[in-house]
Amino acid sequence: MKKLVVTDRSACQDCLSCEIACSQAFYKAYELNTSCIKIGHKKDDSIDVKACNQCGLCARKCPQEAITQNAKGVYMINKKKCNGCLTCVEACPKGIIANVEGKPVPSKCIACGICVDACPMGILQVQEG
């Protein structure tokens, strides 16, 4: 299974390079909540990096069966089947499926590695297995 992995959350510098790269790849611009990886802060003010681990909960909850797992284990949204109900957005335990205003279909991490290349700290990896 191919998935995005955060190797050392404590090394994150909160620079948002990963978020910006993801947003630009999907939407050609960066705005709040347009990324499929999220940098935030925990209650103790430590940095939290939320990345999709391809758990499949979004697919199991989708009433249109618009999210399916490909041969590499990545869950993908079929834009032709998706009706924009946003059940997947609500179901995501990490809150990282992007629902962008004005777009008919949400987007989710496809383990493409763009955020990995953008991270100056080298704490992101796309892993197989």
Rank of each mutant, 00 (worst) to 15 (best):
C112N: 08
C36K: 12
A111T: 07
I37E: 00
C15R: 04
M1L: 14
C62M: 08
I110S: 03
L16Y: 13
D45Q: 14
C112K: 06
L124P: 02
A71C: 01
A51C: 07
C88H: 03
A98E: 08
S107C: 15
S35G: 06
A59I: 12
R9M: 11
A66T: 01
K79R: 15
K42D: 11
A66C: 05
K80C: 06
R60P: 01
K50N: 13
V5Q: 08
G122D: 07
D45E: 15
E19R: 07
K103T: 12
C52G: 00
V49F: 04
A59H: 12
N33Q: 15
C109N: 01
C82V: 04
V105K: 05
M1F: 10
I47C: 02
M121R: 14
H41N: 09
V74I: 14
V89P: 00
I110L: 04
T87C: 10
A66E: 02
C82T: 03
G73C: 01
C112S: 04
S107L: 12
R9D: 09
C15F: 08
C85Y: 05
L32H: 11
I39K: 00
K42N: 14
L4T: 13
L57F: 10
C112H: 10
A11D: 11
P93V: 04
A11L: 14
K108P: 02
Q54D: 01
A98K: 10
C55R: 04
C88V: 01
G73L: 04
Y27V: 03
I96F: 03
V100W: 03
P120G: 06
A11M: 09
E101G: 10
D14M: 13
D48S: 12
M76F: 13
S23D: 03
H41M: 10
Q54K: 02
Q69K: 15
Q54P: 01
G84P: 07
A118N: 00
N53R: 15
K42W: 12
P63K: 08
L86V: 09
V116Q: 11
V105M: 01
